[in-house]
Design a protein around this nucleic acid. Sequence first.
DNA 1: GTCGACCCATACATATGTGTCAGGGCTAGA
DNA 2: TCTAGCCCTGACACATATGTATGGGTCGAC
Lengths: 152, 152
Amino acid sequence: MHAKEASERLGITQRMLRHYEKQGLMSVARAPNGYRHYSAADMRRAGRIRDFVATGFSTREIRAMSACLSDDGSGPCEGGIAKMHEKLAHIERLRADLDARRNAVLARLAAMQDGLAYPEESLQNLSLAADQAGRTELLQSGIGAAHHSSGA
Amino acid sequence: MHAKEASERLGITQRMLRHYEKQGLMSVARAPNGYRHYSAADMRRAGRIRDFVATGFSTREIRAMSACLSDDGSGPCEGGIAKMHEKLAHIERLRADLDARRNAVLARLAAMQDGLAYPEESLQNLSLAADQAGRTELLQSGIGAAHHSSGA
DNA sequence: GTCGACCCATACATATGTGTCAGGGCTAGA
DNA sequence: TCTAGCCCTGACACATATGTATGGGTCGAC
């Protein structure tokens, strides 16, 4: 399919599709007139690239794990899997934080519906408990911020 | 604690800690001599900011969900939770992809140990099957690339 | 008091992602 | 043939993250 449809289906601009190509993340076939033609495989690859980018990987990093972009499972994609797990660790920490905070809010709401006007006291306890449970080890394990700069 | 220790514990540079502050993501108390003093709460907050940044959020986005950064659960952090779920969707897609690919590799390895020298045929089938199962809906749901620019 | 290690602020520099515009072909339909 | 809509390349522009340098203050040990 042509560029316009591809960009619309993927939810990204044509500009970004060209960008991925220029960064060496994918190569797209051309029609005789020079128009790009995106195959189904191209679309899958572009979708993966889009998700990697949206998850905070730089194009340089993505290129380094280009084996994770192709359809077939033949390449050594272990590095990519490791990096995914790093990202997942970040996400998990954040999600735990957010969930704890949301639960505190829900608890407050529930308490309010139970008639207590402002159960500040119990809320304090709740959030602090969640806090200490969830965040202490975050400080201890405070390594592993794999930024672009440190990428391969 | 002072800047050096804080940056080391968090695994980010002092530069970035100052950056977070300048971007209005956190405010750090100062000793009479002007030195920053990072409290335990500051460390928790900075750790969350670090994780958000590492997960592809811009400081602008993070600022918009600053309620998700404080310890107490009083603020309305729902927007942040929604954005986290978007990110999670990206991560989940990628992880599914990677897992499928890894499984294909493992299958090939297992097949090789079973004596078949190059089970290309079965591998093809495997990866293609995983591919079609996992990626078709990716194309269909190809919306939702929430980039910085579109942030609040 | 001197020296090394730390702190501060500011500014310059670089890489990256992304938008947007300019100039110019291709294609299909009025 | 003209026009609208799509495509192409390339370049400029802008925001952001991050490194690094510069110049100077503070503190603790010798």
